[in-house]
Design a protein around this nucleic acid. Structure first.
Length: 110
DNA sequence: CCGATGACCATTT
DNA sequence: AAAATGGCCATCG
């Protein structure tokens, strides 16, 4: 059987990887899907490790307000905003516009 | 080994 | 209504 503890990390990666292009999700949303609505911090930590991975579009993951809180952790802070804009997402002052529309919730899709 | 921190969110005072 | 703290799990010193 699987190990829930290690799975936490992996599960975050799975979900982030499944984020469609032009969409964004939040730490809290992912955490809720994982089964712990308050483990959003671990989601952020998982993304921190995701830095070493290449298949983790962390730029599509933002905080509850659609604010690019983690941009500072990227190779270049501007890159996160640039990537999102490249997908058709409009950002102003690190704030995603129409965030409510772009928000992708797996629970709603599946 | 123990203490502190971390890209957050929700609840309580 | 705003501010403060708790909670979650793992990694770093």
């Amino acid at each position: 059987m699987i190990k829930p503890k290690n799975d936490f990390f992996d599960r975050v990666y799975q979900i982030v990887r499944l984020i469609p292009r032009g969409r964004v999700t939040t730490y809290g949303t992912i955490a809720r899907i994982l089964g712990s609505p308050q483990s959003a911090r671990m989601v952020g930590w998982a993304l921190n490790s995701s830095h070493k991975f290449s298949d983790i579009p962390a730029h599509r993951v933002v905080n509850r307000h659609g604010l690019l809180t983690g941009k500072h952790h990227f190779e270049d802070p501007n890159q996160m905003q640039r990537l999102l804009q490249a997908e058709g997402i409009k950002i102003k002052n690190d704030q995603i516009q129409d965030f409510d529309t772009l928000l992708w919730d797996p629970a709603l899709e599946e």
